[in-house]
Simulated assay, not measured.
Amino acid sequence: MASCIFCKIVKGEIPSFKLFESDKTLAFLDVQPLSRGHALVIPKHHGEKLTDIPDEYLTELLPVAKKLAIATGAVEYNILQNNGKGAHQEIGHVHVHMIPKPRPEQGLGIRWPTQPTEMDKLKELHEELAAKMQE
Rank of each mutant, 00 (worst) to 15 (best):
M1W: 11
M1N: 13
A2I: 09
S3P: 05
S3R: 09
I5V: 15
F6K: 06
F6C: 05
F6W: 07
C7Q: 10
K8Y: 02
I9H: 06
V10K: 10
K11Q: 14
G12E: 01
G12Q: 03
I14Y: 13
I14T: 12
P15C: 00
P15F: 01
S16E: 01
F17E: 11
K18H: 03
S22M: 15
S22V: 15
D23P: 12
D23N: 15
K24F: 15
T25G: 09
A27L: 03
A27W: 04
F28K: 05
L29H: 03
L29F: 01
D30H: 08
D30Y: 13
V31Q: 12
Q32Y: 13
P33G: 07
R36V: 09
R36W: 05
H38T: 04
H38V: 02
H38C: 03
L40H: 01
L40Q: 01
L40C: 02
L40I: 02
I42Y: 03
G47D: 09
K49W: 02
K49P: 00
T51S: 12
D52Q: 13
I53K: 08
P54N: 13
E56I: 13
E56Q: 15
E56R: 13
Y57T: 11
L58F: 03
T59W: 09
T59I: 14
E60P: 08
L61F: 06
L62Y: 07
L62C: 06
L62T: 07
A65V: 02
K67S: 08
L68D: 03
L68C: 07
A69Y: 02
G73L: 05
A74T: 04
A74G: 02
V75S: 13
E76Q: 12
I79H: 07
Q81D: 00
Q81I: 07
Q81G: 00
N82A: 14
N82K: 10
N82W: 06
K85I: 01
K85T: 00
A87L: 07
Q89K: 05
E90W: 05
I91L: 08
V94G: 04
V94E: 01
H95K: 12
V96F: 14
M98S: 02
I99M: 02
P100R: 04
P100G: 09
K101M: 13
P104R: 04
E105G: 10
E105A: 10
E105K: 13
E105P: 08
Q106E: 12
Q106N: 07
Q106F: 09
L108M: 14
G109N: 11
I110N: 06
R111D: 00
R111V: 01
W112Q: 10
P113S: 04
T114Y: 14
P116L: 00
E118K: 05
E118Y: 00
M119T: 14
D120V: 05
L122Y: 01
H126W: 09
H126F: 14
E128T: 10
E128N: 11
L129W: 10
A130E: 09
A130Y: 09
A131Q: 15
A131E: 15
K132L: 12
M133E: 13
Q134T: 12
